[in-house]
Simulated assay, not measured.
Amino acid sequence: MASAALLSLGLGACDGSGNQDSSGRASSVSTFTGLPGRPAPVLAVKIDNVPSARPQTGLGKADIVYVEQVEAGQTRILAVFSSHTPAKAGPVRSARESDLELLRQFGEPDLAYSGVQSKLQPLLEAAPLHARPPEKVPSAYSRDNSRPAPHNLYVDTGRVLAVPPSASDAPDIGFRFGDMPKGGHPVAERTVRFPVGRYGFTWSQDEHRWLVSMDGQAARTTDGGRLGAATVVVQYVKVRPSRFHDRWGAVSPYTESVGSGTAFVLRDGKGYDVRWKRGSAQEGTEFTTASGDRMAFARGPVWVLFAAR
């Protein structure tokens, strides 16, 4: 049924990149989700994820949700928006060195964040992205006084995207979408553990997506209900100490998203052991099955969790 619906929308001939159909004409398919959608500017937002920051706002609109380790074994989220953009997103928190490497594949995206380690500031300013912290776009940020600081800062995405120069439109970052590959094995749920905190993904046949939980609690947003993903990627990477540390002296981890390794992909109630490869920061990431074919993701939002190998 899904394949027939996609064919009726003119998506069945898509080459998998979401850029062209078989005739070579530009297609109206998001390179981030595989769903109908024309190219639009990319906005990345650093979102807090400690318990006091939940439920978040706007996260359900993200095309891609990256989860990375930060100080003291905790995690933080980098949400990437393009196909759909919420009115507000947050709570917004600080950027990390790893973000610069990860975001390089998106061209010159907008990056909304609040605060950065002082010695990292020059690197961030020199990076090929549009830094949009409160100091540069004060009218785009506001605090919710019903929540404790610093977990109460929110960004007005429309005001950020309106600041010139414009961010790059969504490029091809290596994701491929299509029918479920052969192989794999049934998976009802999967837990991804970090030194502090865990993420759970439970397959819902009724909703046809993976329902997200955080630390054993259903993950919800203030504006969109239960969080979920069509595809979940557990990408095993090297996590090493960076040159930077927080105000209390805790060293910031650096997540290496360039390189190669193994990953585990969840889609349509099944799990697949795959390999990943990203040759440089300018390139996207290729995911391949044991047969060497490109791993096809399910169409919809993608969660990528960078787990230490």
Rank of each mutant, 00 (worst) to 15 (best):
A4S: 03
A5C: 00
A5V: 12
G12I: 00
G16Q: 03
G24C: 08
G24A: 11
G24R: 04
G24M: 08
A26Q: 12
S27F: 05
V29S: 04
T33R: 01
P39T: 12
P39A: 14
P39Q: 14
T57W: 01
D63P: 01
Y66Q: 04
V70W: 03
A72F: 12
A72S: 15
Q74G: 14
T75H: 02
I77M: 07
L78D: 02
S82E: 05
S82F: 02
T85Q: 11
S94T: 08
L103M: 06
G107T: 09
Q117R: 09
Q121M: 15
A126D: 10
A127G: 14
H130W: 15
S142G: 14
N145R: 12
R147W: 14
A149T: 14
N152F: 05
L153D: 06
V160P: 03
A162D: 11
P165W: 10
S166Y: 13
A170Q: 13
I173W: 06
G174P: 08
F175E: 01
F177A: 10
P181N: 10
P181E: 10
G183L: 11
G184E: 09
V187L: 15
E189I: 06
R198T: 15
T202W: 00
T202H: 09
D206N: 11
D206E: 15
A218M: 15
R220A: 10
G224W: 08
L227R: 02
A229G: 04
A230Q: 01
V234N: 05
Q235W: 00
P241F: 06
F244A: 11
R247W: 12
W248L: 11
G249W: 01
S260G: 08
G261C: 13
V265R: 00
L266K: 04
K270Y: 09
R275L: 07
W276Y: 06
G279N: 13
S280Q: 09
A281Y: 02
A281D: 03
E286M: 09
F287W: 12
S291T: 13
R294N: 09
R294M: 07
A298Y: 00
G300A: 06
G300R: 01
V304L: 14
